[in-house]
Design a protein around this nucleic acid. Sequence first.
DNA 1: CCGAAGAGTTAGTCATGCCTAAATCTCGGT
DNA 2: ACCGAGATTTAGGCATGACTAACTCTTCGG
Lengths: 235, 235
Amino acid sequence: MSGVEAHNAHRSRRTAEGAENYAKAIYQLQGRGEDAVGTGAVAERIGVTPASASAMLKRLADDGLVEHVPYHGVRLTSEGEQLALEVIRHHRLIELFLAEVLGMPWDRVHDEAEVLEHHISEELEELIASKLGQPLRDPHGDPIPSRELDLAADDSVRLSELEAGQSGRFERVSDRDAEMLRYLDERGIHPGVELEVSRREPFAGPMLVEVGGVTHALGGELIERMRVSGVSSGG
Amino acid sequence: MSGVEAHNAHRSRRTAEGAENYAKAIYQLQGRGEDAVGTGAVAERIGVTPASASAMLKRLADDGLVEHVPYHGVRLTSEGEQLALEVIRHHRLIELFLAEVLGMPWDRVHDEAEVLEHHISEELEELIASKLGQPLRDPHGDPIPSRELDLAADDSVRLSELEAGQSGRFERVSDRDAEMLRYLDERGIHPGVELEVSRREPFAGPMLVEVGGVTHALGGELIERMRVSGVSSGG
DNA sequence: CCGAAGAGTTAGTCATGCCTAAATCTCGGT
DNA sequence: ACCGAGATTTAGGCATGACTAACTCTTCGG
């Protein structure tokens, strides 16, 4: 009996795992856009039917995590945003921890973190963060929210937006596609490396990008997902 | 969609968290005794009402994890025992990992492991085991089942069974009582230390035990829970 | 400005687990 | 052999979260 209460009294009222996942999904779908997020988009992101998402969004609204205008989508409340950032902090700390401390390949840390992010205590979160030296970025270059849940502003642009001749630092790439991560890993293309666009082939052709003296032909999907900062023209 | 399937295809058919907890509880209640375990005992261990346990035990029986004779208790099938050992392996590896690698105090690793044991992948289990050098015991001295789920036989006896004058090696202590662990920790009494029984006070009085040149008066509850191996008489 | 396509919601189920209350079984003692 | 105490199970609910099928709302094209 007492064990159950103690467990549920994690912070104030235990947040269900489902709520955490939805908050995170909505946060990431909102991105920098101000618009409300549609039920269908959330459903697709989570991997459930729109009907399921609709029911869940209503619950989240009841819990004060989102504002829901029926038929017009949801927007996170600040409470919901806090929750999302907490989960994202967990996720990225765990990813980095698995990669750095346990040597798990960076294309596999995502799935593991996706589960564990909901199950670590505040204490373990802090121990992990300390062990890693309060890191600012995860293995894919995504910024890690601070303990106070502040997230570094991101001034990166899509690699696809660069013109031939421009160069910059490879900043980050989505962690959700393991294939893509393996592809980049095999070519030694990691966040932090400098790269320069040699040429852009027309008709949705590949972008020729020079990294460490080697030129790679990167496809359209990839250069949409890769983000670059500190872009400078010419060379 | 694909994400959900991949996640559920953990091994063959995903084992629910509840089943894992019940299997573990039943395993530990069975101990070396051959008798079936009663519904009430399981309920108490898990921290639910007997009604809840009864319903759950029926489900476990349907899933082939236990044999359930209504009104006469349950016994793990070998499948159920495998599941229990798998969870126990996770639990103890995680406890040791938290203590060794992250420096979490040994009186707090239990609660964290209790949650995480259900959520680590086989791959992470193996990475942790490798990092720790395929360890044989957790921080409380409990043996860790091997990857093949073999568990070292335990020839330890309760400290309470020792007579004055006998000595032995403190082998293990239950991880379930954080108070007790803190108490022992403060006195430098850890698994592995040699100890000798100086005297036994009558009328449920304390046992006077010498550890590293210091004599401690240990209460009845404690010496019931502490286990000792390599007992030798006289000195 | 109306009607259909498509997005979103409601209705009705299911599975997992827990609860209380009420029934039922077992077993020891007379 | 029976009775009652105590253990156990059944009955009926609730919460979380997902599904299908059916209904409704919004919006866009003609």
